[in-house]
């Protein structure tokens, strides 16, 4: 993909402080304006992928190409703000770069929390805080937003509202969005493309095709039921049976009888 904002080829990345590979031979690309979601079980290397793509982790093999001068807005996983330091939302937005009041107000409004400027960070609900983090990531007019599990700790209505907001932000700003998520059902509906990860790319494609891929089902058999209901196709799902898909929209990266367990065997 020559127009990609961020691309990676043959990425192998070790877990920080060890020689054990968290990711093996991963190819990745995200185009301008695209919403891509990375799903996968705990420890499948989702955050490692994000950090390698951002350049925070050096890969053992392969390379990451970012468009020169790419403006990135980043929300890391499980951001915890030190509570002993007094901090208003407005002051928080001016870290580490001081910004003007207009810029702060615009970002907060876009994230749907325009009225929280003077509130104390510690007094925000989980959903409000995630939106403030989103507002902070929107400062500096990013070409791509990178959100690592942005809805962790939110309830179901909060999650749905957050993803609606994400789609709206994309529509308004044209920014590409790369997300890591556990919220399969909602996330997949909001995505253009889903990448199912488990140490390597198991499968990727449209939400519908990934939702019915055997690799995906083997990983998320139980928890993906909601997704299944949404994207139910005509064929019967059988975890142990490698069947042909009528429309091969998604790309199977690896086939194995037990789905996509990289520890198997």
């Amino acid at each position: 993909m020559k127009t990609a904002l961020i691309a990676a080829q043959g990425l192998t990345v070790d877990r920080p402080g060890s020689r054990e590979a968290a990711l093996t031979n991963v190819d990745f690309a995200i185009a301008p304006g695209e919403i891509v979601t990375v799903v996968g079980p705990n420890g499948s290397g989702k955050s490692t992928l994000i950090r390698a793509l951002l350049g925070n982790l050096a890969p053992r093999e392969g390379k990451v190409t970012r468009r020169p001068g790419l403006r990135i807005g980043y929300v890391p996983q499980r951001v915890q703000i030190e509570q002993s330091i007094p901090m208003t939302v407005r002051r928080f937005l001016s870290l580490p770069r001081r910004i003007g009041n207009d810029e702060a107000a615009a970002a907060l409004t876009r994230a749907g929390v325009g009225d929280l400027s003077d509130r104390s960070i510690g007094a925000l609900s989980g959903g409000q805080f995630q939106r403030v983090l989103l507002a902070r990531a929107l400062l500096g007019d990013p070409q791509i937003l990178v959100l690592d599990e942005p809805t962790q700790g939110l309830d179901q209505p909060g999650i749905v509202a957050f993803y609606q907001l994400i789609e709206q932000v994309r529509a308004e700003t044209g920014a590409a969005i790369l997300m890591v998520s556990h919220d399969l059902l909602v996330v997949m509906r909001a995505s253009d493309r889903v990448i199912c990860l488990n140490g390597h790319v198991c499968c990727e494609g449209t939400p519908q095709s990934v939702g019915s891929a055997p690799e995906y089902l083997a990983l998320f058999g139980g928890r993906g039921e909601g997704t299944l209901a949404l994207y139910q196709h005509q064929h019967n799902h059988d975890h142990d049976h490698l069947h042909d898909h009528p429309s091969q929209v998604h790309r199977h990266v690896q086939h194995s009888p037990d789905g996509c367990n990289h520890n198997a065997g």
Binding site: Y74, V79, E82, L95, P96
Partner: peptide, 15 residues
């Protein structure tokens, strides 16, 4: 600015 940023959240500061 850097000191306060690091204190508030190291990962955001590193990013």
């Amino acid at each position: 600015q850097s000191l306060v940023s690091t204190t508030v959240n190291e990962e955001l500061a590193m990013a």
